[in-house]
């Protein structure tokens, strides 16, 4: 098994384990253990080199996880899991906190003006890099933004990010469940399947996924759900892995690749 920085496949390219879908304590449904230092420690145990923080309709803990990863070999992508108007969950991945906060402004402007009900959904903790409490996010986050799937994907692309349809094999909050099949011409970088299926099974069930890059992520709401099943081969030196490189890897360009490795 390659280590965090992986084996050098060919000049300039490296293979790195990635989990592109991790929640923190600002997601009301995440366990309280999902704080920055514990997420980074678990990522190190798993040998992950790329981790994306993707909370529901918010990015308020992204900077804290990035700071917690300083001095480690782990690149933390600045992400969000948006719920579209059609109730489809879309992972939105960026390189920087500035980009994801710009995207957050768009999403917040399209969320209903409702407060979270902690009793029903759970608390939404904004924390610092040590996991200490900073404030509550009081918005209702577990709901749909008034943005269509197409608007989400286009908006993310415009800000220099990439979009991945989340857990498309699931019955709830899946693009395929909401829309029946993959809309043609939607510029998604990939589709994600859950830990409960395989790419072969997903393809057999949904013909409209053919030709699309498929990744598997943990959709971790607790530390034990983080996983290293996605091996990304991309240019990661001297600059750390970027969203642009990830996009190229998903398209398999120039020897880059994204593989699913069951284990």
């Amino acid at each position: 098994m390659p280590g965090p920085r992986g084996r050098a496949v060919r000049s300039g390219l490296r293979s790195i384990w990635a989990d592109l879908h991790v929640h923190t304590v600002v997601s009301p449904c995440a366990e309280v253990e999902m704080i920055p230092p514990l997420i980074i420690r678990r990522a190190q145990e798993l040998g992950l080199g790329i981790l994306a923080v993707t909370d529901h309709n918010t990015a308020e803990n992204v900077a804290a996880v990035q700071r917690a990863a300083e001095g480690t070999e782990i690149t933390v992508l600045a992400g969000m899991e948006v719920q579209s108007r059609e109730d489809a969950h879309i992972l939105c991945l960026f390189d920087t906190v500035e980009q994801v906060l710009a995207w957050q402004e768009v999403v917040y402007a399209h969320l209903p003006d409702l407060k979270n009900n902690e009793e029903v959904f759970g608390a939404q903790f904004v924390v610092d890099e040590t996991g200490d409490f900073v404030r509550m996010n009081e918005r209702l986050l577990l709901t749909a933004a008034a943005l269509s799937v197409s608007e989400v994907v286009a908006g993310v692309r415009d800000l220099g990010g990439l979009a991945i349809a989340a857990h498309v094999d699931r019955q709830a909050f899946s693009l395929l469940t909401s829309l029946g099949f993959m809309p043609p011409d939607l510029p998604l970088a990939a589709v994600e399947i859950s830990r409960h299926t395989t790419p072969e099974k997903a393809l057999a069930r949904h013909r409209s996924l053919r030709g699309m890059p498929i990744i598997m992520s943990g959709d971790a709401h607790r530390l034990s759900e983080m996983c290293a099943n996605t091996l990304v081969t991309l240019r990661a030196f001297p600059a750390p892995p970027s969203v642009e490189e990830l996009d190229l890897a998903l398209r398999g360009e120039g020897g880059r690749a994204v593989e699913w490795v069951p284990r």
Binding site: E86, L176, T177, S178, L179, G180, F181
Partner: peptide, 20 residues
């Protein structure tokens, strides 16, 4: 409003009501 359900449940000649 779930198109996957509609594909499995609606029939030829039906009227389909949705907010999608």
């Amino acid at each position: 409003d779930l198109l996957s359900c509609v594909m499995a449940g609606a029939a030829d000649g039906n009227v389909w009501v949705t907010l999608q």
